[in-house]
Nucleic acid binder design. Structure first.
Lengths: 339, 339
DNA sequence: CGCCGGTGTGGGATCGATCCCATGTGGAGG
DNA sequence: CCTCCACATGGGATCGATCCCACACCGGCG
């Protein structure tokens, strides 16, 4: 951080002149590529430091046709799941000497498309995305920009992906509920076309099948993304004549809606209703009783995504890979045998 | 999003050739600057669209010496306060046609300095930061890169800042506690050199002074940043022979530590202990009783920061400004008159 | 008839860093 | 003594887009 209050920023040409060498030599001295006599190298570096020279990444990028930035496109930074993912990606990107362009699409396909074009304009080295459609993968694929899908997968076989083993985790947590005696277990789910929803549903079904317990299909409720709509759906579910004895919420937003609705209806947890969540967020360990949840390690997810992306950048033609991370069930007090 | 699977990305030269004009004309047609005959303009644009041409932002930036990216440096994306801020900044930046380079310094001055250099290398148009030292403002100032400090201020008079009116909000919430009869109100604070800590402390003191209530200085506890250390400090506070009847936690992390510690010690809230927090985060409305908190509008904070930064970019020599946003107190069940 | 100004287009330099290639030097070996 | 190679440096083109300037064309007016 050295530099006197120069009017304009120093360029490599100025460094070269101040050190009495050519631009070429200065470049070699600073980057370490090619021959430079050690004393010259040291002199150039000292001069650069004194001038507060910081190489222009855009110029370097233009010449080398290779950037050190990755684009990251997430659905909602206000949701702790995505925020954690961003933190994990950010940390790992920094370790690997990449910078991160972040955009938040709020779950909108239009914004997603717009962000994709921005990433192309910036010529990012690659993109990490929690996709909302298959468009982005296809578009960036055509532009020869590597893409890694995280959390959800829309472009299987086309893009790499880093996912959580939704099926297995959902099955385990459902199995726990069945194991302690629940038979009427509702699944409250966002929607079933995305891999997250589909696989969590499949795991839920598999647990019933494995236990030989019949499944009441009417207990699978699609609650969408709108929190208010979810609360309405859950209220209807809980006030049925034959209500479920347990609710499995397929994401943290739905778990919040379920928790709040249960409180409004005066249903005690776990006495009258057991609750489990897919995705563990801070409030679940703050409330009493704590909410049993499937914990996805967002940091590991982010790190794996960055690693996968960098591998892909270095080997564009390697076969497409899908990485599955396991998730663990954190048991807290929100589950108990049915009354 | 049109483009056949071309091997290489189209450049403006290729667009120009395909349209039968020169690069200059193509540039004018696409950017809208300068004379172009309307039919030519339309033809060039059609060709560009067919080729899936996306202008190279780095080349444009290099030539124009002006970028459309801003750098954003925050302390901790896993903290909902910073995540919300990032969301607000992201949304506003997108509206204003800027892209956002995001970094997370984890509260470390070393990482902050490193990120600052990266932002210089990328020649960002400006930087928004929740600072951890005065270094960044000074360094980027020397590099003639506009900086806006958010939430905390280290470079008063040098950089613009967008802050919350910490003093007033802290005074109001303290006053509420005094008003319902509390006299022994502890302030648990991170540290007192940053403006956030200093001003919240000042507000707390001002409330006592205004009410003419003497203040027991031993009730002001510096708990630092480490959650475990905070819990130890709070436990010591609550197990004193003359414990406080209310705790004012100066940020959401400390509020969490206080909430958990009270539960561990079996102190009922608000029966035996009232709790208020500076900074409202989701769990505070999920727990029972809810926690009374000062709500900072992170979206407004982020939007104001972006607006301020863009104003500064457009008028580098305008006088330095500090914008104060007010905060509101959200009353929930965690406060009651002392026993 | 020639000059002027408005309209429209193209050539070439430029931003900053990189890197291929040519050039230069000195010492060693034939 | 000359050649050859390792070492060391500089010149100039290049990445893609922009933009200043020169130029060409045309109609109108003195």
């Amino acid at each position: 951080m050295t530099a006197e209050g120069v009017a304009r920023r120093a360029t490599i040409r100025e460094v070269a002149e101040a050190a009495g060498v050519s631009r070429s030599t200065a470049s070699r001295a600073l980057t370490g590529h090619g021959y430079v006599a050690p004393p010259v190298r040291d002199r150039v570096r000292a001069v650069a430091h004194d001038l507060g020279y910081v190489p222009d990444a855009t110029a370097r990028h233009l010449r080398r046709q290779a950037s050190q930035s990755i684009g990251v496109l997430l659905s909602d930074l206000n949701n702790p799941f995505y925020a954690g993912l961003a933190a994990g990606i950010s940390a790992q990107a920094r370790k690997r000497q990449y910078t991160m362009m972040l955009a938040d699409d709020g779950g909108s396909a239009g914004v997603e498309a717009e962000a994709a074009e921005t990433f192309v304009a910036l010529r990012v080295a690659g993109v990490i995305v929690t996709p909302v459609s298959a468009e982005l993968g296809a578009y960036l694929g055509r532009q020869r920009i590597p893409v890694v899908e995280v959390d959800r997968q829309f472009s299987a076989g086309v893009c790499d992906a880093v996912l959580v083993d939704n099926g297995s985790a959902a099955q385990r947590v459902t199995q726990q509920l069945i194991g302690i005696g629940h038979r009427r277990i509702a699944l409250v789910i966002d929607e079933m076309h995305w891999t997250t929803g589909r696989d969590r549903l499949a795991g839920y079904r598999a647990a019933f099948a494995a236990a030989g317990v019949p499944l009441d299909e009417s207990l699978v409720v699609t609650a969408g993304w709108d929190v208010e709509a979810a609360r309405v759906g859950i209220r209807a579910l809980l006030t049925r004549p034959d209500p479920p004895t347990a609710v499995f919420a397929a994401n943290n937003v739905l778990a919040e809606a379920a928790f709040r609705t249960a409180a409004e209806l005066g249903r005690s947890i776990p006495g009258e209703l057991s609750l489990v969540s897919f995705d563990d967020v801070p409030w679940m360990s703050m409330v009493t009783p704590g909410v049993t949840a499937v914990r996805q390690d967002t940091v590991a997810l982010g790190e794996a995504a960055v690693s996968q992306l960098i591998d892909r950048i270095q080997a564009p033609l390697a076969p497409v890979r899908t990485v599955l991370l396991s998730a663990s069930v954190v048991s807290r007090g929100s589950t108990a045998p049915p009354a």
